[in-house]
Amino acid sequence: MITVEGLNISLPGFRLRDINLSIKENEFFILMGPTGAGKTVLLEAIAGLIPVTSGKIIIGKNEVTRLSPEKRDVSIVYQDYALFPHLTVQENITYGLHFHRIEKHQAEKRLNRMLEILNLSPLQDRLPINLSGGEKQRVALARALIVNPRLLLLDEPLSALDRGFREEVRNALKKLHQSSNVTFLMVTHDFAEALSLAERAAIMDKGRIEQTGSIEDIFQRPGSTFVADFVGMKNLFAAQFRDTRAIIKNLEVELGRQPINSHGYIAIRPEDIVISKEALHSSMRNSFLGTVIGVFDQGFYYEVHIEVKNVIFKSLITKRSLLELKILEGADIFFSFKSTAIHNF
């Protein structure tokens, strides 16, 4: 259990205010937020690399707020890998073992396990300059995990990678988390990463935590307009897949394709949902008759909530369409969306 209580940090030109977090043992927890929200500062404070003004950081049963970083058993992995350029892959990975009293035999066993899990054996004697981005990040992961930390901090570990490598490292992360009892705390910008890796998350903005909760909660029930705006994808549903169809509660949605890489979610952006008076006979594969349960002014747009079979869809329409279609609460209305507008993760 990692607990952060009322944490305040003052840096020149930046402040973290009243941060409260509680992460369960062996959980995969995600921290999201726009650039400059203070995510990296929070990670470095938990690692002991930035002095804390007030508040507490508790890892397990021990308060570590004033403990120096080398005594915390907290490893960190950065977006830019931060490999030691003068050391080989093997020397990089085993660096931390020098400072933990570990038998030689045990150390070798751990090294071999890391090399195997992360598929690094053929690269052992290379210098970091001769590695690809994905390889570098796998080395950084091995180096961080070989010391058996209580907590692994990941600062956007996938953002600097090309698409192919990103998938590779993401799978490695998942595998590492499942095969160890280390708690993972990861910063990311990418919703797909968040959904595929974590159960719970927190959203940060301007040095504060805006919302903490299960990923689904955060996406479906944003606690503030900031979070709602930030997550963007307002129609997010846990779904089961049957062939090319997704089933949300009792509602069947046509994907028009086999679901790929499925973690059991589908999402539709609100602007992709079209509202009409009559059923549309067009290329839209999904068309439903629902009841309007709410209309919300969003400035330039209106957000319309439509319920069908206990599933609530959110659509964005212009004020003009709202008036033309005479949308009122309680009215029955058709809405449709293309199967290509459905994202699944």
Partner: peptide, 9 residues
């Protein structure tokens, strides 16, 4: 920072 977090003073 990484070196410190890995246990080095």
């Amino acid at each position: 920072k990484v070196s410190r977090s890995l246990g080095a003073s």
